[in-house]
Design a protein around this nucleic acid. Structure first.
Lengths: 228, 228
DNA sequence: AGTCTCATTGACCGCAAGGTTAGCGATCCA
DNA sequence: TGGATCGCTAACCTTGCGGTCAATGAGACT
């Protein structure tokens, strides 16, 4: 009595399920999303989901895996020929652009990180931590090299400065994601950061955050695969 | 057949329920906490919870209300006689101390803010936004007055600087709450902020974050009641 | 043609969730 | 003293969950 219209390859329905699950997990969270809902959104039967993934947990992990993919990109590659100051600015901008363009999955991860006693995401917590620490190390290194060339205020201590910088970036991220603060002036805050790092008050060469995403296939973050 | 041992006033059991609910909501979240668990932890019957609160949602809102109480304190009162620089440092320190000492409820709120499509906490979102904007306004005002007295680097634009400062503080907060970054040097980052605001690299007078909470009854934040 | 595997389904199960109800003992007060 | 009210509970109800299972149509291989 089954009206199944099987696809040639199971991968099709599997992808469709992953897409639906991702959407629902992102907007509603793990516990608030039922397998029936996923099935409805993916337009498959609930049983098929359990055929592809043994448990709800396994489905969730598969979604997490897919979400993490765009986080890896070799930043250093694409900006090797710029001077340290330009690289630094690029790196900072990349961070914010990435967050803006991947807002929903970043939200998702933050929400996950906030839960304690959650064994499921333990592995991913550490992976994200890895990315994060890699980014900070990159920042610190860049600041140190910029200082050696006199491109950056010399009195700053690279370690403390990179921590502070990253904290500031995360704070902006939070501001962007949590509340849509209308009166939060991102560009101005960035200008302040520049002033602090490089000693001049405003720099503002063209491009930057006000332009929409330009390269669809080039997510902005973070660091080479060797950090994962 | 009921073995009820009624209290003289219902408020007792009500408070006990709120305490238990708060604890569970904080550590496990709304959807992961069942009314039966709350009942068990509060050592009352499940039915009694529904006698005090019509629905689980209503219980949740009551918990939120109780959580927000310590967020209000008149900061300006307790630091009126200090100079602007000291006030600024005090304000910054207060922020971080408050977050540290109320970590679990701050986590709770962040987790709530991350959910979209959540009608329930809409009201609380705006209340928190109010607190937040009040704090920023206070920062900005303080920076401006400190500049007028020459206590603070004059080239900074108060508006952008306060935004940036707050972002940095929030970033540290995130770092403290989300991941327990062992290698995140909070004091150093604070020193960098000081250097940036006041032009000197290190200041480090005694007291500060490394001492445990000293005054049990004096939560540290944020701004006067007129902002709520 | 027959059979095997793959992709898929509707129907079902046990269980725990949020919520309800009937009623019990104590206290108040007329 | 006796009912009204308060504080409280055991037992129950309904719904929806995560998960299972037997069955089935559509190729692919022999």
């Amino acid at each position: 009595m089954s009206s199944a219209v099987p696809r040639a390859h199971a991968a099709d329905s599997r992808d469709e399920i992953l897409r639906a699950a991702r959407h629902l997990f992102e907007s509603r969270g793990f516990h608030e999303t039922s397998m029936s809902e996923v099935a409805r959104e993916a337009k498959v039967s609930k049983a098929l989901i359990f055929w592809h993934f043994k448990t709800k947990e396994e489905l969730f992990l598969a979604v997490l895996g897919k979400l993490l993919e765009p986080y890896y990109i070799d930043f250093a590659q694409e900006a090797r020929e710029l001077d340290e100051r330009a690289q630094l600015e690029r790196l900072i901008e990349s961070y914010l652009l990435f967050v803006r363009d991947n807002a929903s999955s970043v939200r998702f991860f933050l929400a996950r990180l906030l839960r304690d006693g959650d064994e499921v995401s333990e592995e991913f917590t550490s992976r994200i931590r890895g990315l994060y620490d890699g980014y900070r190390a990159l920042l610190m290194d860049l600041i140190r090299r910029a200082q050696e060339k006199g491109l950056c205020v010399g009195t700053l201590k690279p370690e403390a400065t990179s921590s502070m910088l990253l904290a500031a970036l995360n704070g902006m991220l939070v501001e962007l994601l949590f509340m849509q603060s209308a009166d939060f002036d991102l560009k101005a805050a960035l200008g302040t950061l520049r002033g602090m790092l490089f000693g001049d008050a405003q720099h503002n060469e063209g491009g930057g955050l006000e332009s929409g995403r330009t390269t669809e296939a080039a997510p902005a973050a973070v660091v080479g695969k060797e950090n994962v």
